[in-house]
């Protein structure tokens, strides 16, 4: 019996193993891939950052955002303008700028949607963020300075001192480094006492107010942090692709981000990454094999997965929805303090 249990790892161990596996594969992949595929996987890494931003707000704080593309696209446009009009391409300027744009814009949106006296409904926030994304898209399409429908093409390459970071292996590792750093930061955040407060808000927001929590402020903070993550992704994406266009801000991408996360598994962080990998690979294969009808096949496939695996692909590996946030006794044991009652579980 004990032997059988020894062979059955806990869901947390499985998630950690998946993280190590994916990290190892991503670290070694450029050694085995051709240039085209390195570019493809770099795009996947950047979109994984974007999916993490959505998982943070929906999977952990229960805020339904259909507007993550707004922060992604706005940051992309700002760094594109910096490069085009000011000649600023330094990685040490453009990516912090992208982060700051995502953070500031998300805080602005949160101020309108979340920081009123009365707690907003889930639908209100979902529609509010959707409207923001749509408005951003329309604004970019109609503003000549932003390139209108065509966006801003031919963004000069990102630089680090005299070195240009062009698409390929160097950019791949830059994107991977950001993904690892952001993933680790998200993991730290959701496993902290702040993460416990987010879990409380997700489960029963009204009850949290009766404890004395500034519920809406906490939600605005996590929403802004997620906006910053989307901003970094937007900055990376703009320089990687070499151009920005209105779709980067719009509702189609915003919805796609939701699908990535639902497909992979909400509230697990790793599920969002898996969702992006799976959808992007399947999309590519289907588009290659069925150039006309591939979106329909992909849509049906997504529906089937969500119907039969509502917890996403992550549920193939862990038996129930497992979150990486562990708190209290299940987190690292707090140090013993004087007067502690003995007999704790």
């Amino acid at each position: 019996m004990a032997r059988a249990q020894w062979w059955r790892p806990s869901p947390g161990t499985i998630v950690a193993a998946l993280e190590v596996l994916l990290l190892s594969v991503f670290a070694l992949l450029p050694l085995a891939l051709q240039h085209f595929w390195v570019i493809f996987v770099t795009r996947v890494l950047i979109l994984a950052l974007l999916a993490l931003s959505f998982d943070l707000v929906w999977g952990f704080a229960g805020i339904m955002s259909f507007g993550q593309a707004l922060f992604f696209g706005a940051a992309g446009y700002v760094v594109a303008l910096l490069a085009r009009d000011a000649g600023v391409t330094s990685v040490f300027v453009v990516l912090p700028a992208a982060l700051a744009v995502g953070l500031a814009l998300a805080f602005l949106v949160a101020s309108f949607l979340l920081l009123g006296r009365n707690p907003p409904s889930l639908t209100f926030v979902a529609l509010g963020t959707l409207t923001g994304s749509y408005a951003g898209d329309r604004l970019a399409r109609g503003w000549y300075y932003l390139g209108g429908q065509n966006g801003i093409p031919s963004i000069p390459p990102m630089t680090a001192g005299p070195v240009q970071i062009t698409e390929g292996v160097a950019y791949y590792y830059l994107a991977l480094a950001f993904l690892i750093a952001v993933y680790a930061a998200c993991r730290f955040l959701v496993g902290s006492q702040f993460g416990l407060a987010l879990a409380g808000i997700r489960i029963n927001e009204a009850r949290m107010a009766f404890f004395g929590y500034h519920v809406q402020l906490l939600k605005a903070v996590v929403f802004s942090v997620a906006g910053a993550v989307a901003g970094i992704a937007g900055g990376l994406y703009a320089f990687h692709e070499g151009f920005v266009w209105p779709n980067m801000l719009g509702v189609i991408l915003s919805t796609q981000i939701v699908l990535y996360t639902l497909f992979g598994g909400v509230g697990t962080l790793i599920g969002a990454v898996i969702g992006v990998i799976a959808i992007e690979i399947v999309s590519f294969v289907l588009a290659d094999a069925y150039p006309t009808v591939w979106p329909v096949i992909l849509g049906v496939l997504l529906l089937v997965i969500i119907l039969f695996r509502p917890s996403g692909l992550i549920s193939l590996f862990v038996p129930r929805r497992t979150r990486v946030g562990v708190f209290g006794l299940t987190a690292r044991r707090p140090r013993r303090i004087p007067g502690e009652v003995d007999g704790a579980a």
Binding site: Q193, F194, A199, G200, I203, F211, G212, F327, T330
Partner: peptide, 26 residues
Amino acid sequence: FPELSVYDNVLLALQARSPLTALTFS
């Protein structure tokens, strides 16, 4: 909070007045 442990339920109530930075860095 049914998904959380008994310990975490109490910790959740107890930490309500901790400042944001203290919560973030546990």
